[in-house]
């Protein structure tokens, strides 16, 4: 069989060996080249991080050569068009949104997770979970529109004196947006608790609620707290909802019924306005962006640290 095939090719054995060697050497070349190409692509993600750090820091340095650092971090007046840069009023706005969002997202998220992980039957869970995930997939600009045109008018009926743009409505909607994230991360953490522990508690006569609160949640606590940290980071960095519904009046106050401005909101305001490249206002968005980046990075690292350091191993 083989010899007849060889004749059909019209090649002698030595020629075939030669040919094989050639294709082997090209295979070997590809084998060496491919890992290098792949490594280059993998390194790109590191370059993105370096790029982010470089752009933020270099433009921030330019900004601080024009504005005093001390004023930036201690003054409570933010009016770039009159040369007053005190980021505390933007930070207070961001905090106001974050706290409101967490008041909504943490109880709702944890309660949903408990229901889905401990109480719901398989059928109910398979129905409810995808719907919660849809909430996570809706673009934030849609949430912003909804906050402005639906949630704010509704709140106006309950709270007289609510301003048209306000932190409360934006914060509530940011909170709703984050619920699926808290719920699914918390549920993952609770799902990782071995069933043996639940069965042990129930065998001792604990009800489902007691099992959940005294056994499952303590065992999953590191994952749950880590999900809170990630949720806070998301709320701090949320942009479109606050840019649309929270207003554009930076002020150092903690009154959620008033119009405020967050760090992200300011960056949007500048980038959609008429600001020339190279002006102090242009550089100020990088200083604000750096502050924002540091805040979210701290929360992300905290989340990773908590889930690594305090994980209960079973």
């Amino acid at each position: 069989m083989d010899s007849s095939k060889n004749k059909q090719d019209g090649l002698s054995v030595s020629e075939r060996i030669e040919k094989n060697k050639q294709s082997n050497s090209s295979t070997a070349f590809v084998e060496k080249l491919v890992p290098k190409l792949l490594l280059m692509c993998a390194t790109l993600s590191v370059l993105v991080t370096i790029g982010i750090l470089y752009t933020l820091l270099s433009e921030t340095f330019t900004f601080f050569s024009e504005v005093s650092v001390i004023e930036f971090f201690t003054s409570t007046h933010w009016n770039p068009w009159r040369d007053s840069y005190g980021i505390l009023s933007l930070i207070s706005g961001t905090l106001l949104i974050t706290v409101t969002a967490m008041i909504i997202a943490i109880p709702l998220g944890v309660a949903s997770a408990i229901f889905l992980s401990e109480y719901a039957s398989d059928k109910v869970r398979r129905f409810l979970k995808p719907i919660l995930e849809v909430l996570a997939g809706i673009p934030t600009v849609v949430y912003g529109f909804f906050a402005l045109t639906f949630v704010t008018p509704m709140l106006e009926k309950i709270i007289p004196g609510l301003s048209f743009f306000n932190a409360l409505s934006a914060g509530i909607v940011v909170g709703i947006m984050i619920v699926p994230m808290v719920a699914s991360l918390t549920e993952d953490a609770m799902g990782a608790v071995p069933n043996v522990l639940r069965e042990g508690a129930m065998a001792l006569g604990a009800t489902r609620l007691e099992t959940t609160i005294k056994v499952v949640i303590p065992a999953a606590l590191s994952g749950i707290i880590a999900s809170f940290a990630l949720a806070i980071s998301r709320a701090i960095g949320e942009t479109m909802i606050v840019a649309i519904a929270a207003g554009a009046t930076p002020k150092f106050s903690f009154d959620p019924t008033q119009s405020i401005q967050t760090m992200t909101g300011y960056i949007v305001q500048v980038s959609t306005g008429d600001v020339s490249y190279g002006s102090t206002i242009y550089y100020s968005i990088y200083a604000v962006g750096t502050t924002l980046f540091v805040f979210t990075l701290i929360m992300n690292l905290l989340a990773q640290y908590i889930s690594r350091r305090f994980r209960e191993e079973y």
């Binding site: 991080t49 990075l297 992300n300």
Partner: peptide, 20 residues
């Protein structure tokens, strides 16, 4: 390092990517 870097990149607010 690459894994942790990716994890952190996923948490960077989208507007910071805009600045980049």
């Amino acid at each position: 390092f690459i894994q942790i870097n990716l994890q952190n990149l996923a948490g960077v607010p989208s507007i910071v990517f805009g600045l980049l």
